[in-house]
């Protein structure tokens, strides 16, 4: 009892980062429980006629001293669009904390986190927690174009940051798996993490598997509840169908049935 909560958070700020991404900072109604990188919250979309289900978002940052957490909201559809129109002082209901987190590295391990698109969101939190254990944190962030890279100064605080863009406007041109750090040094890492579009994660997982490196990915299958009762977000695994919301969203690639 009491492991998960539903609470009304107050919007402290809602800042537009670029054309499609917003940074929502929210104050919790009471002391925040422990939240780990990769976990998510399920957000009620208010004032949206006919939208019934919540929308899941990775936790971007947690500030326990001020009892706040931040989310990156990327406009993907009607629900996320309405959410970006929220104002300072508004209340929004969150179910939290949900899901299993990334495996935090052991002391001095070398880690590489790879993110693409909205999948970059949980990696800042992962880098921050990892930095407490090791100085060897590399991150490759991939995007279409330079202006799609958001909050880069934040990531720089905790990681050696590398970029790719599809149009070559920032960092290496191409996909994250084309970056020299990824292509040439992959087997030097103890742990590799990926979050982003399916094709990106599968490409990362394939290389990590070939190199025999520990690799976790964070999935975002469509879900209705977020806490393991609707059984809609299932992912086939070596141990049968698992719920992405409770058995994931973070999975070790060896547990998945991906054809890679």
């Amino acid at each position: 009892m009491g492991k998960k909560a539903v609470g009304d958070f107050t919007v402290i700020s809602n800042r537009k980062l670029n054309q499609s991404n917003f940074l929502l900072k929210l104050a919790a109604p009471g002391p925040l429980p422990d939240i780990s990188p990769g976990q998510f919250v399920n957000v009620d979309i208010k004032n949206a006629k006919e939208i019934f289900l919540r929308r899941p978002f990775s936790v971007f940052e947690v500030d326990y001293s001020n009892n706040t957490l931040s989310l990156i909201v990327k406009i993907l559809g009607r629900g996320s669009k309405v959410l970006t129109e929220i104002n300072e002082g508004d209340k929004i209901s969150l179910i939290y904390p949900l899901g299993k987190s990334f495996t935090i590295p052991s002391a001095n391990e070398k880690i590489l986190a790879v993110g693409g698109g909205s999948g970059v969101a949980p990696l800042l939190f992962l880098a921050k927690e990892s930095k407490l254990k090791t100085d060897n944190v590399d991150i490759i962030l991939g995007a279409r174009s330079a202006e799609d890279h958001i909050q880069v100064d934040e990531y720089k605080k905790f990681a050696n940051l590398h970029f790719t863009t599809e149009d070559g406007t920032l960092g290496a041109k191409g996909f994250v798996t084309h970056h020299p750090v990824f292509r040439e040094k992959l087997n030097a890492y103890d742990k590799v993490y990926a979050c982003g579009p399916d094709a990106m994660m599968k490409a990362v997982a394939k290389e990590a598997k070939a190199a025999g490196v520990f690799c976790e990915v964070s999935l975002e299958n469509l879900m209705a509840c977020g806490f393991g009762v609707c059984l809609c977000c299932i992912e086939p695994t070596q141990h049968g169908n698992k719920c992405v919301c409770t058995d994931g969203p973070v999975f070790n690639i060896n547990d998945l049935k991906w054809q890679i």
Binding site: F52, N221, L222, M223, A224, C230, C232, C233, I234, E235
Partner: peptide, 11 residues
């Protein structure tokens, strides 16, 4: 999968 589709005021 997929087993769920959101619809107007329901799923």
């Amino acid at each position: 999968y997929p087993r769920m589709a959101e619809t107007a005021s329901g799923m």
